[in-house]
Amino acid sequence: MSGNLERIPAIAGFLRSLVLHAVLFVGGAVVLAPLVWMCLASMMPAGEASQLPPRWWPSHPTAEHYAVLFSSLHLGRNFFNSFFLAAAATALSLCCNSLAGYALAKLPFVGRDRVFTFLLALLVVPGQVGMLPLFLLLRSFGWIDTYWGVLVPSLASVFGIFLVQQYAQSIPDALLDAARVDGASELRVFWSVGLPLCRPILVTLGVFTFLGTWNDFLWPLIVLSDASKQTLPVALASLAAEHVQDTELMMASAVLTMVPAVALFLVAQRAYVAGILSGALKF
């Protein structure tokens, strides 16, 4: 191809690409700005974050607010609660949803379509509709203000069942049949053939559930009243209501709440995005 004719569009293309990249990186900075400021403000001496003119950089970086969070406000306890509840919810939801999703995909039975449609219809029901009666129900079990009470709604999720079901459909029946011919029970087939093959989607589901539980707010807010059982977001919300004046302290606890979620996402990014997409593209 002769060069001269193509040079002008090439320059235009280069400029366009330059502008595009500039816009993208500025946009990225704008998106990250609140999170960066949160971290920086958490290290400012008290009062500096609400000064005029505002500052970005702490004059004397300090960890005193973090120390207060752990010593006098006992946020370490809430951190543990959040972690424990998220881990437990993940384990429970993996058990329930993988069994159900696998059954719907790989075990044909009369009425399967009806069960499937029933679950599909539930996707439209917002979780808040049943909350009041659920609270009254758990109250009669004595589960209010217990970890169980928080975990109950995350035992099984329609979304999780679908995620597994969609994925499990791609398992070749021949593999399962081979195991059956060897005389394995259905549970055995599920355990040693189905589950290992579903591992990628289970990782996805696990990350989803963990992050979802970690970030959840409304239900733990309602169920947990004992401060020593509360999760981090709930503790943070009450801190934000009590300590309106202490911006830096709030930022420190916001960082504490946010960092584990962001870290897990960064580590398991691929599985997480795959989860979103398999939800979106199969729809």
Binding site: F84, A87, A88, T90, A91, L92, G142, T146, Y147, W148
Partner: peptide, 14 residues
């Protein structure tokens, strides 16, 4: 382990 732990943890909490 986590499942068992959660069951125990919940038990202790009540």
């Amino acid at each position: 382990g986590i499942t068992l732990g959660s069951a125990l943890g919940c038990h202790r909490a009540v």
